[in-house]
Design a protein around this nucleic acid. Sequence first.
RNA 1: GCACGGGUAGCUCAGUGGUAGAGCGGCUGUCUUACACACAGUUGGUCAGGGGUUCAAAUCCCUUCCCGUGUACCA
Length: 838
Amino acid sequence: MGHVLNNTIQDILVRRARLEGKEVLWLPGTDHAGIATQARVEKELGKENPPRTRYDVGREAFVDMVWEWKNKHGGIIIKQLKRLGCSCDWERERFTMDDVYAPEVARVFTELFKEGLIYRGRRMVNWDPVLRTALSDEEVIMTPTHSKLYTVRYKLSDGSGQLLVSTTRPETIMADVAVAVNPNDPRFAHLIGKTVVRPLCEADIPIIADEHVEIGFGTGALKITPAHDRVDFEVGSKHNLEIIDILTPDAHINCPGCPELHGLDRFVARDKSIELLEAKGLLEKVEDYDNNVGMSERSHVPIEPRLSMQWFLKYPCVKEAAEAVANGDIVFRPAHWAKTYAHWLEGIQDWCISRQLWWGHRIPVWYRKDKAEELQNAPKLDEADAEAGDIYVGVTPPSDPENWLQDEDALDTWFSSWLWPFSTMDEECRKTFYPTSDLVTGPDIIFFWVARMIMAGYRFTGQKPFSNVFFTSIVRDLKGRKMSKSLGNSPDPLDLIAKYGADGLRFGLMRIAPTGTDVKFDEKQIEEGKNFANKIYNAARFRMMQGEASTQPAPKFSAVHIDILSKLKELHGTVADALGKYEFNTYTQALYSFFWNEYCSLFLEAVKNDLRDGDPAFRNATLFTMDTVLRHYLALLAPIMPHIAEELWQSLGFAARTEGKPLMSTPLPSADTLLAGMDETEVSKARALASALYETANRARNLKAEYNLATNKNVRFVLKPTLPVNDDLVGRLALLAGAREASVQADYDAPKGTPTALTPFGELFLPLEGLVDVDAERTRISKELEKINKEISKSNAKLGNASFVDRAPAAVVDQERARLAEWESKKAQLETMLSALG
RNA sequence: GCACGGGUAGCUCAGUGGUAGAGCGGCUGUCUUACACACAGUUGGUCAGGGGUUCAAAUCCCUUCCCGUGUACCA
């Protein structure tokens, strides 16, 4: 659903831009999703009988298998987008591992390496023990977890006592190389420099002093396990401590010195280690403890901090990237994301770009065979080693491949995706389309992708990669959970399209999710989109049933015709303004309410008689107006509901005017042609009359409803006008109100108790000419009076307040006075009616 | 902990100083010759709580509570 939302927004921008006559490039493509795709294929291998691993298959054959899988399944998203109607430039579809893109990635790697920004180093990384690869910091999700805090007794080697040490990871005790206390902690000052006995895999380890230990926290003593904790690693380095790694890549214990735990899974070993400690009498206590555990975004298991040889990138152009957003060169919408972005850039750490995967861009680095082993274990490799001729870095393999070994690792997928905006374009294309205009994406990848693309843009093109970034809503289910493939809580867009149509899906989703705040997906909303499409279709069909418009006799326009054309003109402005500001909500609302309320419910209902047996001059005006409205409206609608707009454009015959060209490649009809010959005052007069007519019709319907005559078409209305009202308007009033007739009688003498409503045209009477329930009437009127009296006293209080009258704008005060007058008159009316009933 | 969103009708959401809105749902009627995926009417709200500024607060300020997201973390 996220893709549907995202791509609908892009399609709206793209289609609208085309209608505005712009040349548009929308270049579709996909990335190779390194981890996810490889894991998927490995899973399939594991299901075979007998199960196989990628190592059984071998690198080359395995990569072929992934390609095969990709070719089979990678097209699904593309298919969905096509079904959704996305007007991409499909011939330019790109893939991050295609023949043109891949060398680009290697080239960029080489360039950054030569610049010294990429280096290889032995560092603490986030290790995923299931996928057996390093991850970037962004791929680790800190998750609140209910854990246990174990307090363990570390005996002093000289037997003079013990130190209590708390830990959440007793299974790593064998890798402890020291116990640290704060140098300023008086409780332990005398112990610094002594040794304690490591309680598992026993050995004497020193008690050291380090500021990092908080005096007030826990027991005040901290075990130091440099191989399995980031902070401990730093403390260890500072104090030159040994690093004992007791975990295998898949997080099993590797400690022959402790045979009871050796070979066990880390969590099994945790329980077992507690048993061992308890048996030795070294377990002081166990407490419940809530902490945050880093989980792999991919495999959902706790990551291991692990000392490992990896490739890192010092981000380029961080300053330019930060400034571009801060100074508005690149505009984020909603704007508040700029803060999140700035905060991330401030604390930015080097990016671990190597992955222990086979599916992806293999790192373009080769090691001299005769020194390979030595190089593998070097603490750091960079440009200096290349200059020394020990390693080779380049887009193409070395000329004497037999003497070199290529690095086994692949690059993080984002290390290719971050080049997308410009790597997908050739020189010629860039001249026209780079920097690009809009990026539409989810806020969940603001760091993974957006920030990195901006940095890459500045570094490799010297420019921003795009001018606007629109962050979409995150689509959640009704329980508030993010929709995702793994949760299985997202409906299949193809199913929704089958059920509601692509246009229904697009419109329905945009109606609830356009502002960039998260949204709960409800299929009901999509049904509304379908209903709207249906409404448009029916309205168009209604027009088709009427036949051709004619210029003979000359069309005669009534106020309602001018009114709807004027509203259409207004809609043009609203749409242009809303889309210009990326306010998709305003866009959809305006489209919806114009068509359903203004055009169908008011205008069409008011002109139906023109089409039946009315004045042919009116008929021609009405047909002309319908055609004008539909023609303009379809063009305004097309960006969001392209299928129905195009279909009706053809079947209503509008395409014939442009030699059959589709709406998609027709310029947007100009709003200036609407009511071109009319002066402003004439138009606003017509609008006022039409508005008065609709308001009067409403009052008339209300009167009918109040007397339970809502469906009775035999009623008649009498209007005692205060304004000049012509026959045309009165006729339309009767039609709108569903009455046999409406008549104007300036001297009408209403029988006592005749229901009446105050309308913009004057007093409107509904002669009852039949029986009404007098008691029910009396009750109803009394209730009404009660309500009105309340309003009147509220209004009086307000107007009696000197500061309101003095300080509020005159218009507001006048408005209040008008309201009061209206209530007073209504009150008088009701009182008359009440007395008439006796 | 810090930062950013959000809390408005039964539901999903608009509304940033001037009479609380839409669609859906509920309830009443209606197969009115474009549309029952519809039409007409109607019912729903102490705008999370408290305090403040203002003639006037859903809207601005302070504060508390709840939900979501990001980020940092002490074993």
